[in-house]
Simulated assay, not measured.
Amino acid sequence: MNPLEQRLAAVKSRLLAAELAAGRRAGDARLVAVSKTHPAETLAAAYRLGQRHFGENYLQEALDKQARLGHCDITWHFIGPIQSNKTRPIAQHFHWVHSVDRLKIAQRLSEQRPAYLPPLNVCLQVNVSGEDSKSGVSPGEAAELAAAVAALPRLRLRGLMAIPAPCDDPHQQRRPFAQLRTLLQPLQASLGLDTLSMGMTDDLEAAVQEGATLVRIGTAIFGRRDYGKDGGDAAGGQALR
């Protein structure tokens, strides 16, 4: 196996082991490969290995990759902060958005989602760690925002997302994930939500223990990122096979 194949297989093995250790069914937690800064050629290689869900943080980079990989049956997740002037292309070109934290952004996504596409799947980002540097609605305001977003016609509110502060202690890692799960529980009954987007390379197991249904893994699959390169993703490149 080549290095990418080895890393992807190792992540899938970790995910399966975490599901079984938590008493959950295999496949309960879906793997979203976070591919920001990595070139379209690498995504194409992961696609050939069976990966179908990819997460991107940077809009123009993602649009360039989408243009080059248009022949691939990829589900695209936008997981980065959203500026008001970027909502239209996000609404037009993504299947999921994980990082909605303001009603204004949700309203723009709903208004700009093309009528010929199904409603856009969205998650509300919750700032469970209370970090000033992190985006996200506060836990105390999440239910009110969820009710408002759920009423928008071109969106389908699916659940909650969080990026907790880094922590090396597996037991401490579970606390913010448990908080997000607790926030979701009443919304499951009232709004039919079904998604917890949480867990990354260093805390995948803790997130699965607390009920993650989408885990966002980048480094463990693609290796460390080089932010000094554009990844060869200039628009107008040849489609990749």
Rank of each mutant, 00 (worst) to 15 (best):
Met1Ile: 13
Met1Trp: 10
Pro3Phe: 14
Leu8Arg: 13
Leu15Arg: 12
Leu15His: 11
Leu16Cys: 13
Ala17Val: 13
Glu19Ala: 11
Ala21Asn: 04
Ala22Thr: 07
Arg25Thr: 14
Ala26Tyr: 06
Asp28Leu: 06
Ala29Gly: 02
Ser35Ala: 09
Thr37Gln: 05
Ala40Arg: 03
Glu41Leu: 12
Gly50Arg: 09
Gln51Ile: 02
Gly55Phe: 02
Glu56Trp: 04
Gln60Lys: 13
Glu61Trp: 05
Lys65Pro: 11
Gln66Gly: 07
Leu69Glu: 07
His71Gly: 15
Ser84Phe: 07
Asn85Gly: 12
Ile90Ala: 04
Ala91Ile: 14
Phe94Pro: 03
Val97Pro: 13
Val97Gln: 08
Arg102Val: 13
Arg113Glu: 06
Arg113Tyr: 10
Arg113Val: 10
Val122Thr: 06
Val122Lys: 05
Val128Gln: 02
Gly130Leu: 10
Lys134Tyr: 03
Arg154Pro: 03
Arg154Thr: 07
Leu155Thr: 05
Arg156Asn: 11
Asp169Pro: 00
Asp169Ser: 00
Gln173Pro: 01
Gln173Met: 00
Arg174Glu: 00
Phe177Trp: 01
Arg181Met: 06
Gln185Cys: 08
Gln185Ile: 05
Pro186Ser: 05
Leu187Asn: 10
Gln188Gly: 08
Gln188Ile: 11
Leu193Ile: 06
Glu205Asn: 00
Glu205Pro: 00
Ala206Met: 00
Val208Arg: 00
Thr213Val: 06
Thr213Tyr: 10
Ile217Trp: 04
Thr219Trp: 01
Thr219Arg: 12
Arg224Asp: 15
Arg224Tyr: 14
Arg225His: 10
Asp230Glu: 14
Asp233His: 03
Gln238His: 11
Leu240His: 11
Arg241His: 12
